[in-house]
Amino acid sequence: MSSAALSRWAGDALIPIDYCDPTEWVVEAADSWLTTDGTAFALRLHRDRFFAAAAERGAGLEGFTDAALASFWEASIAAIPAKGDWFPRVELQSKNGAASFLYRERTAPPLSSSVALATHRGPELRRVPTIKGPDLGAMMQVRRAAQERGADDGVILTPDGFVVEGGTTSIVWWRGDILFGAPEGPGWEEFDRVDSVTARSVFGLATALGVETHREPVTPAELDGTEVWALNALHGIRIVTSWVDGADEDGAGRGRLQLAELPGRLALWRSRREALRKPVRAAAA
C-alpha cells in the first residue's frame, strides 16, 4: 500500500481503490489516531467511539451489520504498517441508503508541541456535533478560516460566547494546579461536541494522579493569564501560545490573550501520555 492508499471493505478483504469522490458518498462516522512503530495511544477508546458512532449512523443502512463493522476494523488494524509514523482513518460511508467501509492509510504529518488558536467568528457549521465524521468538512472550514488569520485552528463558541471545542482540537486549561474543561452532559447541550479520546484520557490520567479537575463555562477572554492546552489524537498535548480575538468579547478587535506556561508541566504530561502507548495489535481487540 502507498502512503496515501484508499481501500474499501469488500466483505472479506480490503480492496484498494484509486479514487473516492466525496460528492458521491456521505461520511457517517470516522475515527483516526497516530501510530508510531506499531504502537498507539488509547486505541481501545478510538475503537469504542467509532463502533458507537457507526452503530448509530449505520442503523437502517443496507449492508451494515455489527459483524461487518468488527471484521472491517480488524482488517484495518492489520493493514497499518508496523514501522514509521502513520495517521490512519476508518470511515463508515453511505450512498443511496447503502453502507460502505473505507480505510485511509495516511503518513503522519509533522508533529508539534505548540499551537496558535483563533476564535471562530463565522456561523455554526456543525450538523452532528457529538459524532466524529459527518462534520469533518465543516471542521476543516473552521480550521482554514483560522489559518487565514495567522492561527493553526479555530475555536467554536456557544451563542453566549463560551468555549466549546476547536476545529480539530479539544480545549482544556489550568488554574493553578486544577485542570479544567468545558461543561458536558445533561443540561449543557449547548456544549455538545465530539467525545475527545485524548481529553478523556488526560482527565482520566489526572484523576489517577490525584490532580483535581473541574468543568466550567468560560469565554476566551476569561482564559487570559491561564495555561491552555489543545488536545487531539495526532499531536497529543500541545501548549497554546497565542489566541487571535481571544481578548475581544464582541469580536470587534484583534486582541490576543496573554497565556501562561508552568515550566516543565507540558513536557511531563506529554511524557506520561507517551508512556501509555501499547502495541496496536494487542490494543485493537
Rank of each mutant, 00 (worst) to 15 (best):
A145N: 15
A283V: 10
L234N: 04
E91F: 14
T36M: 10
A208V: 07
N232G: 12
L111D: 11
N96A: 15
W229S: 00
V194Q: 04
E189I: 04
L14K: 01
R89I: 02
R143E: 07
A230T: 01
F64Y: 15
S170D: 09
S3I: 07
V211N: 11
S201M: 08
S196Q: 00
I77Q: 01
L231K: 05
A275Y: 14
A283M: 11
A55K: 12
T213G: 05
T107I: 14
P129I: 02
V164R: 00
G246M: 00
A284P: 05
R89G: 04
E28P: 06
T35E: 06
V164Q: 00
P217M: 06
L14G: 01
P110K: 04
P16C: 13
R281M: 07
A53Y: 01
S3L: 06
D250T: 08
A199C: 12
T119K: 15
P129A: 02
A283Q: 14
P81G: 04
F180N: 05
H235W: 15
D153Q: 02
V163Q: 01
V90C: 04
R8C: 11
T198C: 11
G210E: 14
A208K: 14
G176T: 05
L223Y: 00
S114D: 08
L205K: 13
A282S: 08
L61M: 10
A79F: 02
L43M: 14
T65R: 13
G154E: 03
D135W: 04
A138R: 10
L45A: 13
V164F: 03
G122C: 02
T65I: 11
T207P: 05
E165C: 03
R44P: 09
D245H: 14
